[in-house]
């Protein structure tokens, strides 16, 4: 690969992004602005995550890319191929073998370990955005820990649906300080945010990076009388039989036939192999 600098971005840009990442790690949950670059893919396809991955990748890394838990969807395949071509790094579908995992909308079922980095693609990094449109105001609210509004959203959920209906992008409080959007992962994954690996969040269009160092305390917001509950479809995986993993519902025919299977394809395939 001589046409591109390693991992596509030029070194100055990567330095700029690394500085943002380091700042993010130093202030867990705080959204660090960065000069997001145009990437050779449309916004919404993970431009933020790709830039973060590009900045942390080294030639020795092994990369895994998942989209909704799956390694074989268009988005995952494209990004994986992108880094194969521009960085020449090894790629894998095995969660345990990857040193860097870029993800959209899921955290792998297999617990991550120290030394691993997981990079989330984030569409809208501001958890207060849907209630307070002004960026100036939301930044001030973060600065002053003025977070009443966040519970208003949960209140509205309960008053309209009888329960906290927010099922993904469920807001969390980081180390008792910043309220953070964990990206659109299902709230089932929220408890896993307390983990051993480094977690980095990149929002390309919104030009924000934030981060969670290993073992950061992450608490999902809730009410005393409506405590946080990670939920999943009440089924077992139709392929591997797992009753503890997060499931996708698959419509199989026009007659309403459907099945539930693990959204984490690596986890499911490994269990099927082990069972065989």
């Amino acid at each position: 690969m001589k046409e591109y600098n390693f991992a596509y971005l030029d070194e100055q840009t990567k330095r700029m992004i690394r500085r943002a990442i380091l700042k993010g790690l130093a202030i867990p949950g705080y959204q660090v602005p960065f000069a997001s670059r145009e990437m050779p893919m449309p916004y919404g396809w993970g431009t933020g995550g790709v830039q973060v991955s590009a900045a942390v990748l080294t030639p020795d890394d092994t990369l895994k890319v998942i989209d909704q838990g799956a390694d074989d969807t268009t988005n995952a395949v494209s990004i994986r191929r992108f880094f194969q071509r521009t960085a020449g790094v090894d790629v894998t579908e095995k969660t345990g073998e990857a040193s860097v995992i870029q993800t959209r909308h899921r955290i792998p079922e297999q617990a991550l370990r120290e030394g691993q980095i997981i990079v989330y693609q984030v569409p809208i990094p501001e958890p207060l955005r849907f209630l307070e449109p002004s960026e100036v105001e939301t930044r001030k609210m973060h600065a002053l820990e003025d977070y009443g509004l966040m519970h208003v959203k949960l209140y509205e959920d309960i008053s309209q649906h009888g329960d906290i209906a927010t099922a993904y992008a469920y807001p969390v409080k980081v180390e008792g300080r910043y309220v953070m959007d964990p990206s659109p992962i299902p709230k089932f994954d929220n408890p896993k945010l307390d983990m051993a690996a480094i977690q980095l969040f990149g929002a390309g269009r919104e030009q924000r990076i934030y981060a969670l160092p290993p073992y950061t305390k992450v608490v999902s917001l809730d009410f005393d009388d409506y405590p946080f509950q990670p939920t999943k479809a009440d089924h077992a995986c139709a392929l591997c039989g797992s009753t503890t993993s997060y499931l996708d519902e698959l419509i199989t025919d026009d007659a309403g036939g459907r099945m539930f299977i693990c959204s984490d394809t690596d986890y499911c395939a490994t269990r099927v192999e082990d069972a065989a």
């Binding site: 977070y147 009443g148 509004l149 519970h151 208003v152 008053s159 009410f223 005393d224 009388d225």
Partner: peptide, 17 residues
């Protein structure tokens, strides 16, 4: 209800009922 409750939640009321 959310409008009225916001100030309560801003001063850390955490019981929906």
């Amino acid at each position: 209800g959310g409008n009225v409750g916001e100030r309560l939640m801003a001063v850390n009321a955490r019981h929906y009922g």
